[in-house]
Design a protein around this nucleic acid. Structure first.
Lengths: 241, 241
DNA sequence: AAGCCAATTTTGAGCAATCAAAATTAGAAT
DNA sequence: ATTCTAATTTTGATTGCTCAAAATTGGCTT
């Protein structure tokens, strides 16, 4: 009886060798991101359908296929959650996606605000060999251009809890380390303001009533940001690290 | 009446915007190569099915779809031929394929004998923007690692007639400029013998009865090659160029 | 308890690409 | 002319992914 359901070999690219169409890869990656964003809750079909840009019925039937492939656990009317194997595949895809993004910026000189969509297409087409060459060429980087951590080839990520501009201490310098949004418009705005990963800034004050955050950026006028936008910009204090 | 069938705009990527699934792109590229190899003859369904690795019925129905899309001219039981528009698409795909191959070798350091299959997957996934960056990074190269010419972004190629080791003059030094085979085994053999594009060698003699060609390679023992293999290795005399 | 609502699932259908196997056809051989 | 044969085309199914629209369901109101 080959291939007992438990205790599978997690080495190499085992997760990707069988049922893995690029559609499956996209669903799994999206489920992973939704799950992170909702703190491990089951993802509902309506939500999944929305983020995948399909009608709910499509999500339902696709999820059944994912369940058959052992990538998710599906509770009818209760939602869906990745299995260990699905998690692994998602991390592998995230590794691909983020390495490609960084590659496009660093080696080909594309604009960081546009590489997300490029990487979306490429992540399914690139071989492991090419991926590892890219990793090597880039010097085994830890984060992509948005500051998102790059999983290891074994499928591990370290995702430290971080403060954001919406809740970090006031008056102290903060280094921007990550931007949680892939929308080119938003990213270009961030860039124009000098709020890209790497910049050091200070939050002057917050006005909860106005939902606004005032920010001091060296050599620039003070700007102000909506609270929702501020929450998408993660920081750390330059002291540690 | 928009879009008159004649006189279409050949600029940009017009050929690729509508019906172009990667399957279509593969059929068209393969048809182009077969057509070059058979001197403009119509390609028969059996042949097409073989090179595409499908059963003949599949080739027939696919070719009808290509004909509907205006990419080929199809004569039932007579075969198929690319239209101007199909030719254009094929050249665009060949440009992608060859630039990617060269990129993989030059930038990522992959072995030239293996890049063909990698490029096969990537050529459908890469955007025009990324492609043009690659072209720029490589300095607008004229040929890929096998010596195959890279079509321009407008879809033009210059494919000079060349002698091969099977028919070039004896005794005179010749520079190898192109290898007409993508099989990794063959390419690795070529490499071990020092017969890659760029090498300069001399054909000592040919023995038609034995179907053999004797070759002198600087700093190496004389080797001998079968006539069929010799015909796949194209040369030019170092004088011109 | 009955009704209602919104989310979900089911059903039926379609498209692209494929195969297997049967039917057709063009041309060569008799 | 008839027959044969090999290539080709047709037909009918299948798979993966999708949508539209109908049916179901679980929980909330009243």
């Amino acid at each position: 009886m080959p291939g007992a359901p438990d205790s599978f070999d997690l080495s190499k690219n085992h997760e990707r060798e069988r049922v893995t169409s690029s559609t499956v890869e996209n669903y799994v990656r999206q489920l992973y991101l939704e799950q992170r964003a909702s703190d491990g809750e089951m993802i509902l079909m309506g939500r999944l359908a929305t983020v995948m840009g399909v009608v709910p019925g499509t999500a339902t039937s696709m999820v059944k296929a994912l369940a058959d492939a052992g990538l998710v656990e599906y509770q009818p009317r209760g939602g869906v959650r990745l299995t260990a194997s699905g998690d692994k595949l998602a991390l592998l895809m995230l590794r691909r996606h983020r390495l490609i993004e960084l590659f496009l910026v660093k080696v080909l000189g594309l604009d960081w605000s546009t590489v997300h969509d490029e990487a979306d297409a490429l992540e399914h087409a690139i071989s492991d060999q090419v991926l590892e060459r890219i990793d090597k060429l880039l010097g085994h980087p830890a984060t992509d251009p948005h500051g998102d951590p790059i999983p290891t080839s074994k499928g591990h990520v370290h995702e430290p809890r971080r403060m954001s501009l919406a809740n970090c201490p006031l008056g102290k310098p903060q280094r921007i380390v990550r931007v949680l949004d892939q929308d080119p418009e938003f990213l270009q705005f961030i860039e124009r303001q000098g709020l890209m990963p790497g910049s050091t800034i200070t939050v002057g004050s917050r006005e909860p009533a106005a939902e606004a955050v005032k920010i001091r950026i060296p050599r620039r006028q003070e700007t102000s940001l909506g609270l929702a936008a501020a929450a998408k910009i993660l920081v750390e204090s330059p002291a540690n690290s």
